[in-house]
Write a protein that binds this DNA or RNA. Structure first.
Lengths: 248, 248
DNA sequence: CGTTCCAATATGTATATACATAATCGCCAT
DNA sequence: ATGGCGATTATGTATATACATATTGGAACG
């Protein structure tokens, strides 16, 4: 077999050895277990630890180096690099507030709630390296009688275990999460998209109609917390951001 | 030798084979020689072409795939992907820089230039209260051969009189304004829209196709300076903003 | 004591080989 | 025609091996 199952129990998903080494090390670094400056085990040590060839270890480490997480020095070993920061502005928008600002009654309605072990797509969206339990939620935000936005959300249960006990029937996960989990970083992606059948149906618009899609990933202390995708019908929504230059 | 010199003359720099394959292919893609959708030679063909092992070729292609430049499909081959641009909303975005970050040649082309006395619509867009002279500009930003964004701009000539002397034939008004007019505040509006006949025609897309619209108003010391509307085909563009909370 | 030089060591790159996996094409039977 | 099934093919992952290269620590020598 070219694919190897994780040795541990608990229904470990199948990962290539290369990916397993990669995510193990990345986790150690991102969790802070291995602080910046820490020397990563030598290739030959990892070779022994994972019982694999040096090429496999080398490929994983090279990838981490190219991603900027570690620095490799000949004859000395590989070391965790200092993290690099990025700054920005914009506000985490709360849809209830948006709707109420329009003078319309707000309502949230859950469409689906699914607990599952994270698949490859889930992990990509959340930025997770290892499989684990996630909560997949889908819900509709209403402004008056009309659907205002469709929300598709993933919550990393490893980071927010309490979410497992909440049903989110008519409470939106966004406000629930805020206050419970301090977020330290977020990333927004904004794009336009044509509504597919499913989306058009949920939002009560025509298939193919343009939508604004806002995706947000949130981290708390390096741990991915949630990924959320808001889909707005184009007519209903405009994002506004206002700013002044940071310096002068 | 583990390092190989390029076969060609002209003092070719010493590159690892892996890097040479990588950059060769990247060049072909970024130069446009291999358009999106083009099938890259199979691994065994590249193996023959570069006279190296499959592992070396594989490593290079895997890297390109991970970087998002190509897509690999089993049994079918490797294909050049549609380029995806990502811009930070927060930066006053300069489209030239976005395009060049994609490795594509940039070009600006003026479509229209019109000086007029501001009508009600112009004043609404600029945030002017009294009528006055404005310059209406329309132009296309190209990435390689393809239209990348359509720009519709209004310049308040009362605030920037020198703009009246500039023709903006192949210089985009954005870079021209920066440096001449210090801006103190900006407001962005972002929305999705279906392309109408005119826009579809300019951007070479289908009418009704979703577009991302970014509008920006800029002030300098309380005076409205310019209003600009960028219209991007949905496939080509995603805005990215990343931030940490200002306080905690 | 300091400088030079060599050997040891960890990473860098490449090879040939092997088998797994996914997708497709075409054959064959219904 | 058509729907399923096996062969083919390209990529995916891993192995063992080999030698190159940079850097460091220490031995040898003046």
């Amino acid at each position: 077999m070219s694919l190897v199952e994780t040795d541990d129990v608990e229904g470990g998903e199948i990962l290539s050895l290369h990916q397993r080494i990669l995510s193990d090390i990345r986790d150690k670094i991102l969790s802070g277990a291995w602080a910046p400056g820490h020397r990563i085990p030598f290739e030959h040590e990892l070779t022994a630890q994972y019982n694999c060839s040096r090429m496999t270890v080398n490929k994983a480490l090279s990838q981490l180096a190219k991603a900027g997480l570690i620095e490799r020095r000949r004859r000395s070993g590989s070391f965790v690099r200092q993290p690099q920061s990025q700054a920005a502005v914009l506000e985490l928008h709360d849809i209830r507030i948006e709707v109420e600002a329009l003078g319309l009654p707000y309502r949230y309605e859950r469409l689906e709630r699914l607990k599952r072990r994270s698949g490859a797509e889930d992990r990509a969206l959340l930025g997770l390296s290892a499989p684990g339990p996630v909560l997949a939620l889908e819900g509709l935000h209403f402004a008056g009688e009309r659907p205002f936005a469709l929300e598709q959300r993933l919550i990393n249960l490893s980071a927010v275990a309490e979410a497992d006990e909440e049903q989110f029937i008519d409470i939106a996960p966004g406000p629930w999460l805020i206050g419970r989990v301090p977020w330290s970083e977020a990333e927004h992606r904004i794009r336009a998209m044509a509504a597919d059948e499913t989306i058009a149906d949920a939002l009560d618009i025509d298939p193919g109609a343009p939508c604004l899609v806002v995706e947000r990933r949130t981290w708390s202390a390096e741990h991915p917390v949630t990924h959320v995708r808001f889909i707005y019908p184009a007519e209903s929504h405009t994002l506004v951001a206002r700013f002044t230059p940071s310096q002068g």
